[in-house]
Design a protein around this nucleic acid. Structure first.
Lengths: 225, 225
DNA sequence: CGTAACCTTGAGCGTTTTCAAATATTGTGG
DNA sequence: CCACAATATTTGAAAACGCTCAAGGTTACG
C-alpha cells in the first residue's frame, strides 16, 4: 500500500480550481488528502448537477469510459494525490490486494450514490436539506471532525446543485428547520444541530453510507502526516 | 471465468417475485441471465425509488454494508445465477483476474448511476421520459435485441419510480412525445422511435453508459446457451 | 470602511402532483 | 375464440410545491 503513494504526485488547489476537466481523457485517479471537492456534471444549457462531494479519503476518477463524464473542482482549498491510471493498473497487476481495496472503494461510492439517487427521486425539499445536513455531520464524525456544531464546506448553490433544488429553496428549508428548532445557524456555514434524531427522521435517512474512517488504516490509504 | 459459474446456482423468478430482500444479510451476488429486474428502495411511508433496471448480463448484490439497502425484484420472468459471496471472494483470492473484472462491472454500474443522478436532479419530466426511452433502446441495441420498435419490459409505475415522477406525468410525457411525432405507440409497451436524434436531444442524453455487449465474451460472463 | 459576493425573503408563476373518472389492455374461463 | 373481469393507462381539473424574478440583508475581504 505504501508503494501506491510512491507513484503519487501531490498537488494543491484553491477554492474554485478545476482538478479534473469533463471530457478529458481519463488518465488519472485522485485521492483527496485535505479539503473538499465536488464531482460536477454540466450541460450546455447551464444546468449543473453535483454527483458527489469529496471528503478527505475519497477517491475520484474511476470510469469505464475513455473520457470522464464529469468534472471535479475544489470547493475549498484541496490537497490531493494524483495517480497515473496506467501506473495504478500496473501496480494492481503486481499486488492483487490492491484490486480488492479499489473494489471496496468503488462499492462504497456506489452505496453513497444510491442514497443520493433515492433522495433526488423521492424526497421533498425539506427532506432533502435535512438529510443533507445529517450527511455532512455524519461524514465529519467519521473523519473525527467536529460533528455537532458543524462547518459546511459548501455554499448554498453547491447544496442546491447536489440536491436538485435552487439556492432559494435550500435557503427556505434552512429557515424552516430553524423555525422548527431542529437546527441553529451561526452565519450561513456554521450549523448547530439541536435535535439530531428529529433531523434524521425529517430527512428520511435510511442507510448510513460507510466512508473511510480515520482510525481505520486499512481503508484510509494516506501518507502519514 | 468458467470456474465462476461452477459455484453458481441457477434460479427462475416470475414477474413480481422478490430476488433479494431489503435489509437481508448481503450474502449473495446475482447475475441476470434472462429477463428484467429492478433494484428497489422502499420507505415506510410507501414511497418507492428504482435505483437501476437490470438487463441480461448485469450483476447485482455488491454492497459495502452487511445488509442490502435495497431489494431486487423481477419485472418480467427472470433467470439468474446466484453466487455465494464467501465463495466468490475465495475464488477471487485464487484468480486475481476476477477482481479486475468485478471492478469493471462496478465501474460501469457507477457510471450508469451518475447518469441517472443527473437525470433525477436536473431534467424536467419530458426530458426524463425521452432519455428513458432512449436508454431502453440503447440497452437493447447493446444486447443485440430489436432497438427501434422496442418493447418496454417495465410498466409506467416502474418508469415513474425510476425517474422520480408519477405514473400520470410519465403517461402525459408519452402523449406529448407522440404529439411531437418523435415516437409512436402500439399498445403501452411497444414504442416506435420515429426520430431518434430528436428523442436523444430532447432527453439531453450526454453520456452513453457502457453495458455488457453480447459479442464481447470478456465482459459477458455467461454460460453459453 | 466599502464593495462584492452570497444568503435570505417575498410575490407570482409554472410544472408536477393529487384526486377522480374514463378508456384501453391483458388475462381468464366459458 | 369470444366475453368479461381485473388491471393498467390515459385524460381532466384543481391544488401544491418548487422555481423564477426581484429586492433587501449579511458576511467576508481588500
Amino acid at each position: 500500500m505504501h508503494r501506491l503513494y510512491e507513484l503519487a504526485v501531490e498537488r494543491s488547489y484553491n477554492t474554485g480550481d478545476i482538478i479534473l476537466r469533463e471530457e478529458q481523457s481519463a488518465d488519472y485517479v485522485f485521492s483527496i488528502r485535505r479539503g473538499y471537492a465536488a464531482m460536477v456534471r454540466l450541460t450546455s444549457d447551464g444546468k449543473r448537477q453535483i454527483l458527489a462531494f469529496l471528503f478527505p479519503g475519497d477517491f475520484v476518477g474511476f470510469t469505464s469510459e475513455d473520457n470522464y463524464h464529469y468534472g471535479v473542482s475544489a470547493i475549498a482549498p484541496v490537497n490531493a494525490c494524483r495517480f497515473g491510471r496506467a501506473e495504478l493498473e500496473a501496480l494492481v497487476e503486481k499486488y492483487p490486494v490492491m484490486d480488492r481495496k479499489l473494489r471496496f472503494t468503488l462499492t462504497r461510492a456506489m452505496d453513497a450514490s444510491y442514497e443520493l439517487l433515492f433522495s433526488l427521486g423521492r424526497k421533498d425539499s425539506l427532506q432533502k436539506v435535512a438529510s443533507f445536513i445529517w450527511y455532512v455531520s455524519y461524514r465529519h464524525k467519521k473523519l473525527a471532525q467536529p460533528s455537532n456544531p458543524i462547518h459546511l464546506p459548501m455554499r448554498r448553490s453547491d447544496i442546491a446543485d447536489f440536491m436538485g433544488l435552487t439556492i432559494e429553496t435550500v435557503s427556505r428549508a434552512f429557515t424552516v428547520l430553524k423555525g422548527m428548532d431542529v437546527i441553529r445557524l451561526r452565519g450561513a456555514y456554521e450549523v448547530e444541530i439541536v435535535d439530531m434524531d428529529r433531523l434524521r427522521s425529517i430527512g428520511v435517512v435510511v442507510a448510513e453510507p460507510a466512508p473511510y474512517e480515520r482510525n481505520d488504516p486499512d481503508y484510509y490509504p494516506h501518507k502519514a502526516d
